[in-house]
Design a protein around this nucleic acid. Sequence first.
DNA 1: TAGATTGTTAATCGATTAACAATC
DNA 2: TAGATTGTTAATCGATTAACAATC
Lengths: 210, 210
Amino acid sequence: MEYKEVSETVLRRLPAYLHLLNSLRNKRSHVSASYIAAEFGLNDVQVRKDLAAVSGSGRPKTGYAVSELIGQLEACLGYRNKTSAILVGAGNLGRALLSYAGFSDYGLDLVAAFDSDPALVGTVAGGKPVLPMEDLEALCFEKRIRLGIITIPPDGAQAVCDRLVSCGIRAVWNFAPTILKAPAGVLIENENIAASLAILSKHLRESTGK
Amino acid sequence: MEYKEVSETVLRRLPAYLHLLNSLRNKRSHVSASYIAAEFGLNDVQVRKDLAAVSGSGRPKTGYAVSELIGQLEACLGYRNKTSAILVGAGNLGRALLSYAGFSDYGLDLVAAFDSDPALVGTVAGGKPVLPMEDLEALCFEKRIRLGIITIPPDGAQAVCDRLVSCGIRAVWNFAPTILKAPAGVLIENENIAASLAILSKHLRESTGK
DNA sequence: TAGATTGTTAATCGATTAACAATC
DNA sequence: TAGATTGTTAATCGATTAACAATC
């Protein structure tokens, strides 16, 4: 199936819609854009446009069929095809991600973690092995890994990123608080903790007056 | 000092500038907007406008004084005044955040964690005590906590959020993959893992052809 | 048919970028 | 003075919202 080009802005809203629809699955067979919009405090035309980019299956008067829409959202978000990924850095955050069962719902399959700390190598987290850094290249090539997750402290992050790129990685999910550089064609998605904190802090200062 | 209204879009870029400036601190005394822009692949006028909202201390020909700009960014981002926060959910992710030393650089002071699991209560993570849920209200009121961090599985998240709000919390940093509802005036900042994954997944599908 | 709801076209709004004037 | 760089004003672009037409 072909999709209209879905902008990044729209794409970021879709998972929330999907989440809501899944919670509605057993309660109603159809849902209107206005209902979804009200649920998230969004404009209803916006929701209709977002859904049109993915589905085009809404019917006047009845709205959208919940189960059909779920399928279309899942397909568009790529939750249907498994993506294999590896993770570098098996500290607390890394192990939290390894243990997170929800990833498989998103089509993500974390196959292994790597760490330079000999004390961690050989352990298991969330059922995934923690391997020595030396094995990184071999595993990435063997399993044709395209996604790498970085959960190490900021200092070594760029070196790890470079190494991942040389292993054929096409996208990096970066949890280290640094800006990483990568060649064109390799996507760096930063989980930007500092930016979130800035928003929170501003709200607190404005709402409490201090 | 008064600031021009800083939009959320701008605010999200400022931490990255600050990070770069800190790395430059010992290397150069001044820096130009074009340099910063090139470093992040941004437009240089955009950087100048962002900085103007915070500083207004740039000088033609010389650029911005690095140390002065660092101070102004820190002030604007609220890294100067300590914000006390509590965390609910001392699992892997919660402990990762508790152990993260970098928060103090952002003016964040995690005072304690709470968990309903008796096995975790009484333990210590990152030097912070894990307390029983019963103590939540008392501590929040006593220390006038305004920020709560939620790192529990999605099912219980709304109930915890409601409880935090009733304790006087004004902002919630939500790591649970659910949409939380809160009264007007209480900010919910979602660390949106599913949205990030959607972006990554789309890039991978488009860049590898499958 | 009347009403609810989708989808489209046009208007608005905000953010980005380009052109240029100001200044050290 | 000439050149580098800031800051401002105007143009462009994309996202949101409003108005309305289409349809079940």
